[in-house]
Amino acid sequence: MKKRVFIDCHTDMQDIPAIKLIRRIPDLEICGISSCYDPYRSGTEEKISEGFLKSSGFEGKISEGARSPIIPRRGCNGGPGGHSEYYCRPQDGYAWEQMFEQAIKDNEDSGITMLLLGPATNLAIAILRYPAIKSRIDHIIMAGGSFGFGDVAPYSERNVYDDAYACKILLHSGIPMTMIGLSAATDAALSRDEMKTAVRCLVGEKKSESCLEDMSLRCLGGKYIVPSLAAAAWMMDPEVAVMDNFHVDVETNGTEMYGRTVIEWRHYLHEPEETRVAVSIKKDKLLDIVK
């Protein structure tokens, strides 16, 4: 029986290459897709983009998720985020409802894997609303966080920073979790040409430009650093990453440190180390997988 994965992602074109890569994994079935909270999407673009709907190749319903984080950043740590309110229930229900529906499908013996390619808001709401979901999620794979430096702040990676509380809820949920974040993905930073070639292999010539355009936030110092692609590659072949286990938490206070994933690297303390963290990504292996 195929394993089932539910993908919570950005629903412009930036995560399409990762989804295409996941679709190549033979023993994996995508059982649901939802739209993550995305503070960089304009208020007029709340709907899931046509490009995403056409490109994802997913035939089930794609549900809409949160339009604001669980707890917005406050004045002391960067100001509010969030978009317009929902004034009616989305046609296909909320992301967290679909997550729960898929997780508890009673004809399935095993639970599901949750793959988060954006902020963790939707899954955090699912855990709060439906505590029983915790026993039906085998594994959370989060493309985000960082072992060291950040992108949106000195130590904070964008996906975690955009809803640090949600990430904390996941880390405290007791569900096994793997974090493939910015610092590891930096080992596999791709030039524009390399990225273009990789994206073409996954989505085709026609859609590659719009994917690259929507990945612009992941272009740092002229190189593409894309945790979502690294996470998808790891799901296909775990050999692409060097992993280790740590205790991980998220800073939800402070200004400069807000949204930092704090990784307890001191193995000698012999404390519980619940989270599997990608320490580095092998670039050559990643490019081989994509091709």
Binding site: E85, Y87, R89, Y94, W96, L128, R129
Partner: peptide, 13 residues
Amino acid sequence: VAVLLLAYPHLKS
């Protein structure tokens, strides 16, 4: 009530 408002934002009205 917090979970209600997070999970069913359309019901605030």
